[in-house]
Amino acid sequence: MRSDLLLIGCVTLLATATATATTKMSSDYTSLKEEDCRTLNTDQDIYQADCPSKHNYLLQAVGRDLRLGVNLIYNHHKVSYQPLPSFRVGETVEWRYEKVGNLKKYHAFIYRIYTAQIDPLDGDAFYLSREQDKQQLVVIRLNKEKSCLLGVIEPSKNMNREARKLADNKLAECIK
């Protein structure tokens, strides 16, 4: 009897160690390109489309005026980040996950925004070239109805790495 319990304990310990050893953070990617999304609305200068997503989340590209952003929705709970100046989003979004064995456990969502810079001569962003737009990375924690904004990563040479580090930090707190 004692040897059976010892054997079960060793097998359980080995299985736990194997599962822990195979845990790996990685990413999947989906598109925000208009041709990859299903357009829902284009009335009165409003654009809305459902785009490919992961893990039962709804990803919508939404736009009005000179702004194009995303809404991440889970069971009617919406998370979005809308800066004040005109902005647009990149064409690709990153879904961070932890791989445990063959399972992918999605825990974060990262996307790039380009914020228009204001021309100091006339106070307008409309006529500046889009190459002058400021890039930022938006990091959202995936937690079903409790999904939330973790942060906005400012431009730097390591901004992709910084965004992934924030996304993978289980102790990071939501900011709104």
Rank of each mutant, 00 (worst) to 15 (best):
E35T: 03
E35C: 05
D36K: 12
D36C: 03
D36Y: 01
D36S: 10
C37S: 07
R38F: 06
R38N: 06
R38D: 03
R38Q: 04
T39A: 07
T39D: 04
T39I: 14
T39R: 05
T39S: 07
L40S: 09
L40V: 02
N41P: 09
N41E: 04
N41S: 04
T42F: 04
T42N: 10
T42D: 05
T42A: 08
T42V: 11
Q44T: 09
Q44I: 03
Q44W: 06
D45K: 09
D45L: 08
D45V: 02
I46V: 14
I46N: 12
I46C: 08
I46T: 12
Y47A: 08
Q48H: 01
Q48C: 09
Q48E: 13
Q48N: 08
Q48K: 12
A49C: 12
A49M: 11
A49I: 14
A49L: 12
A49Q: 09
A49N: 12
A49E: 11
A49T: 08
D50N: 14
D50F: 08
D50I: 15
D50G: 00
D50K: 13
D50C: 03
D50Q: 13
C51Q: 12
C51A: 09
P52K: 07
P52W: 11
P52E: 10
S53E: 04
S53V: 02
S53D: 02
S53H: 10
S53G: 14
S53L: 05
S53R: 05
K54C: 10
K54D: 12
K54L: 11
K54G: 13
K54S: 14
H55I: 00
N56P: 06
N56E: 15
N56T: 09
Y57V: 12
Y57R: 07
Y57S: 10
L58E: 08
L58V: 03
L59V: 01
L59Q: 02
L59M: 13
Q60A: 03
A61F: 08
A61R: 15
A61T: 15
A61M: 12
V62M: 07
V62P: 04
V62A: 07
R64L: 12
D65K: 15
D65N: 15
L66A: 14
L66S: 14
L66V: 05
R67G: 02
R67V: 06
L68H: 06
L68D: 04
L68E: 09
L68A: 02
L68Q: 05
G69S: 10
G69K: 05
G69F: 07
G69H: 01
G69A: 00
G69T: 00
V70C: 00
V70F: 02
V70M: 08
V70W: 01
V70D: 01
N71E: 11
N71K: 12
L72E: 03
L72N: 07
L72R: 07
L72S: 03
L72Q: 06
L72G: 04
I73L: 01
I73C: 05
I73S: 09
Y74S: 05
Y74G: 06
N75W: 01
N75I: 04
N75M: 01
N75R: 05
N75H: 03
H76K: 15
H76T: 15
H77S: 01
H77N: 02
H77F: 01
H77E: 02
K78L: 13
K78G: 02
V79C: 08
V79R: 06
V79E: 01
S80D: 06
